[in-house]
Design a protein around this nucleic acid. Structure first.
Lengths: 117, 117
DNA sequence: TAGACTGTACGCAGATCATCGAACACTTTG
DNA sequence: CAAAGTGTTCGATGATCTGCGTACAGTCTA
């Protein structure tokens, strides 16, 4: 259902790593968004991210009960569902919830996720 | 994630079959609701149901590309996600979208599903 | 009552998913 | 430069999901 995406602008930063590939919420199927939000770990990530400042949280700073390999996978799923944006900052990768963009294309969905316990 | 549920009122109808088990949206986890709506076939069922009158549609009357065994499974998933209600009417089983109840507990979610193509 | 019809239950196959450990690449620190 | 830290990728594993055909249980109709 999900597929690879492109548009990787040449990193002008100091990082030599390939920057993460992003998908804009506009290009995300409803099925994909729903599937991304149907996992407890990813819900926790989204909620924790929503309670933080943009670019404040590194990938390893979340309180979820999985190892880093699984965590990395979950971040990739969130990225390809248009839910988060990631940026390399030195050795770390920092995150941002794409609130406005996602809300524009899936109005009310993030609200629901963040309000419903 | 989903689990069996109970509360099967004694069927006062003419049917001798065990009536379907229902789950109220109040008892549905967000994860479960999302998972139920992350499948194209189930989305089609929900949308077609939303475009029909309550109790108007039998299970076999939907335009989805799966056989009846799979269809039966999808209806069970929708039931346990609190999305539909079913009732036996003779040999047939008729359906209703639980719009109001579901909307009360997952505000905006059905709207999103029904508006977003 | 025999047969057609509607839908469920069961068992199976194939695909997808979540998770892990290990190896790797890159960055930062000592 | 070596060591520690951050995160990705790979391969494997077990669980879950979707689909099918078949068999079955009721219900309706001729």
């Amino acid at each position: 259902m999900t597929k690879g995406n492109v548009a990787a602008p040449a990193s002008a930063s100091a990082s030599h790593r390939t920057p993460p590939e992003h998908v804009h919420p506009r290009d995300v199927l409803l099925e994909t968004a729903m599937a991304a939000l149907s996992d407890p770990v990813r819900l926790a990530l989204v909620r924790e991210l929503a309670a933080s400042e943009d670019w404040e949280r590194t990938c390893g700073s979340f309180d979820v009960p999985v190892r880093k390999a699984a965590l990395s996978h979950h971040f990739a799923v969130l990225r390809s569902a248009g839910l988060i944006e990631q940026r390399d900052a030195g050795a770390k990768r920092i995150n941002r919830l794409r609130r406005a963009e996602f809300d524009e294309h899936f109005p009310g969905l993030l609200d629901l996720v963040l309000r419903r316990r």
